[in-house]
Design a protein around this nucleic acid. Structure first.
Lengths: 155, 155
DNA sequence: CCAAATAAGTGGAATAATCAACTATTCCAT
DNA sequence: ATGGAATAGTTGATTATTCCACTTATTTGG
């Protein structure tokens, strides 16, 4: 493994380190900004980023437990519990105790939740378009591969 | 610009979209997990992610205004105001009204803040090492270039 | 040079996230 | 079967963030 200037500048324990050359610093900034932009679009339709992530996950999974959603969204379980019940209050999801395991709470999208998904995707599309309009498919692929690899490394 | 399957699957307005193929979904997850890991390391030394970002920025800038820090860290100004004064209470930073512009508050690291920087960097180094140990310098470079490009696109 | 516009920051109420301690249920090894 | 460990989730106190209206200071166009 080649380890040169790039590595040193990116490594927080190296004297050559600086935020400007730190992958995690840039990542945090990017995601922070993405959340700001999404929030600005989602607020007018009564939605926000955490809710959108839950809805997205439930669209994939049909029926998921609170822990599963928390895990996939990387949000703490107790935060997710409260979020899910807020969303139930807003009729975006429904909850039910599992019939096979009395500890688990199964969460599903409601009709209203599915409608919200469509609305939110069109907003998310605007930002995606803006973010990636000049980036090649191959680069998107590379970017996602690296993102997933780093994620797995610290999982 | 080639626009094929990758693009469609990554685009929230496309029917082929799914979180699993969405760059922003993976990015949010990665940063969320990174923050979890950092928090776990930082909590024992009385620190957290927002503070670490402020300290890092002040190490780069010597003296910065609240707005500048908020901008660089992508945190709202009113949040930053409160964070800075919490940090001042903890003697990590000092604040002073600018002599040339009575509106602006200049923030600096204290000695204690500089010490905290060293401690925190060693923790950040552990996670960096874990995250990037099997990733080539060239890939780190590519990754950061793309991150910055996407950031600029939505700035 | 002054009024209007802009910029920086503050404060308080409302909302959300976190921590830690707790309940209820299930699993498992004897 | 049964008691201890593990899992899933909940709750309340605490802390942090957000929104938004407001103050104060500076800049700028006429």
């Amino acid at each position: 493994m080649k380890r040169g200037k790039i590595w040193r500048q990116a490594n927080p324990t190296d004297p050559a380190f600086s935020p400007e050359t730190s992958p995690f610093f840039h990542l945090s900034r990017l995601v922070g900004l993405y959340h700001l932009r999404m929030d600005a679009h989602l607020k007018p339709i009564g939605m926000d980023v955490p809710r959108w992530r839950v809805i997205n996950i439930l669209h994939e999974h049909e029926c998921a437990t609170i822990s599963t959603i928390a895990d996939l969204a990387v949000i703490r379980v107790s935060t997710m519990t409260k979020l899910v019940y807020r969303m139930e209050g807003e009729r975006l999801v429904s909850t039910a105790v599992s019939s096979t395991d009395g500890r688990v709470t199964e969460v599903r999208l409601t009709e209203k939740g599915r409608n919200a998904l469509d609305q939110v995707r069109s907003k998310a599309g605007l930002i995606f378009e803006r973010a990636f309009h000049d980036i090649e498919d191959a680069d998107i692929q590379t970017f996602m591969t690296l993102t997933r690899k780093i994620y797995d490394n610290i999982y």
